[in-house]
Computed example of a mutant assay.
Amino acid sequence: MVESVIKNWQGEQVGETSFDLRVAKPETASHIVHRALVRQMTNSRQGTASTKTRSEVRGGGRKPWRQKGTGRARAGSIRSPLWRGGGVIFGPKPRDFNLKLNRKERRLALRTAFVSRAEDLIVVEEFSNELQRPKTKDLVAALARWGAAPDQKALLILAEIGENVELSARNIENLKLIAADQLNVYDLLHADKIVVTASTLEKIQEVYSV
C-alpha cells in the first residue's frame, strides 16, 4: 500500500489517496525491470542499417589486370573489400532486434517500476478546467508549485489528454505528457518527478492491477 497527498492547482494539500499494486519480489525486482527496459529500448531500434558486400557493389566484373607478369599483387575485381569503393566485410544488414517478454512479466515490471517511484510521485487534482486556453507559462508555474522544478525531468500522466493541456505541455523542454494507457518502464525510470491526477491513479490501478 502506497499513500500520497493530493494537491490542488495552487499546490496546497487538499486530501490523501492510496494505491496498491502487486509488484515483484525484492530479490527479483531489479532483474525483471531491467529485462523490460532492455526490451523496450531494443525494440525501438529500426534495424535498417545496411551495407553492400562485394557481390552487391556496382562494377568490378572485369579482372583489372592479368594474373601474372605485371609485378603487382593478384587482383580479380576492383570491388574487393581491400579496395577503395569495394564491398564491406561483415557490415550491418537489415535485421529484427525485437525481444520477447511474456505479457505477465511486462505488466509486473511496469507495476514494479511505478511503485518504485512512489517517493517522486506527485498526485494532483484534475486541472484541465484551470487551463481555459493553452498557456505554457501557467502549466510551468503549476508544476513548480507541485514540486517539479523547471530543471527537473517531469512525466505527466493523464487519463484523458485535453487539447489545452496538450498544447500547453508540448513546448516545455523537460516535460513529457503521456496517457495512462501508454505507461512504459523507460519513461517511469527516466523522469525525476511523476505527476498524475487522482482519477488517473485510479485508472492505473484498475487497468494494471490484473
Rank of each mutant, 00 (worst) to 15 (best):
Ala29Arg: 13
Pro64Ala: 00
Phe90Met: 11
Ser55Glu: 10
Glu105Arg: 09
Leu183Trp: 07
Gln67Tyr: 00
Thr42Arg: 10
Thr70Ala: 06
His190Glu: 12
Arg107Pro: 12
Ser55Ala: 15
Asp120Tyr: 05
Pro92Arg: 05
Glu105Leu: 07
Lys100Gly: 00
Lys176Ile: 14
Val23Tyr: 08
Gln40Arg: 08
Ala109Ser: 11
Gln67Met: 13
Phe90Ile: 11
Arg106Tyr: 11
Pro150Gly: 00
Leu139Gln: 09
Ile157Tyr: 02
Asn98Glu: 10
Trp83Cys: 13
Gly69Met: 07
Ile172Met: 09
Phe114Ile: 06
Leu101Val: 05
Glu12Arg: 13
Ser128Arg: 13
Arg35Phe: 02
Lys100Cys: 04
Gly69Ser: 13
Ile194Phe: 04
Leu37Arg: 06
Ile89Asn: 05
Ile122Arg: 03
Arg111Asn: 10
Thr28Trp: 04
Val210Ile: 15
Asn102Asp: 15
Ile194Gly: 09
Val185His: 04
Glu27His: 10
Thr48Trp: 06
Val2Tyr: 00
Leu101Met: 15
Gln13Val: 15
Gly15Ile: 07
Glu166Asp: 10
Ala113Gln: 04
His190Asn: 13
Leu143Glu: 04
Ser199Tyr: 08
Leu155Trp: 02
Asp151Lys: 15
Gly71Leu: 14
Glu173Asn: 13
Trp9Glu: 10
Gly69Lys: 03
Thr42Gly: 01
Pro94His: 09
Met1Asn: 14
Leu131Ile: 07
Gln152Trp: 02
Asp20Met: 11
Ala142Lys: 10
Glu206Ser: 15
Glu163Ile: 14
Leu175Asp: 00
Trp9Gln: 03
Arg72Ser: 11
Gly69Ala: 06
Ser116Arg: 10
Glu119Pro: 02
Tyr186Gly: 13
Ala29Ile: 09
Arg84Met: 09
Ala179Trp: 00
Gln152Thr: 12
Glu56Val: 03
Asn164His: 12
Asp120Arg: 15
Val14Leu: 00
Pro134Cys: 09
Glu119Thr: 13
Ile178His: 06
Asn174Met: 08
Gly59Cys: 01
Val124Tyr: 01
Ala179Tyr: 01
Arg45Met: 08
Leu189Thr: 00
Gln46Phe: 01
Val88Cys: 01
Ile204Ala: 01
Ser44Pro: 02
Val23Arg: 09
Ser168Gln: 02
Glu125Gly: 12
Ala149Gln: 13
Thr28Ile: 08
Glu202Ala: 14
Ile89Ser: 07
Ala29Cys: 05
Glu12Cys: 08
Lys153Tyr: 04
Ala154Arg: 04
Gln182Tyr: 01
Gly91Phe: 02
Val88Leu: 05
Val57His: 04
Gln46Trp: 03
Gln46Gly: 01
Asn171Phe: 00
Ile161His: 03
Val185Gln: 09
Phe97Pro: 08
Phe127His: 00
Asp181Tyr: 14
Lys104Ile: 04
Lys63Pro: 07
Asn102Cys: 05
Ala180Glu: 15
Phe97His: 11
Val33Tyr: 11
Ser77Tyr: 10
Trp146Ser: 12
Phe97Asn: 07
Glu126Ser: 06
Pro94Cys: 14
Ala142Asn: 08
Lys25Phe: 05
Arg170Ser: 12
Gly87Asn: 08
Gly71Lys: 12
Pro64Asn: 05
Asp120Val: 12
Lys153Cys: 06
Leu158Arg: 05
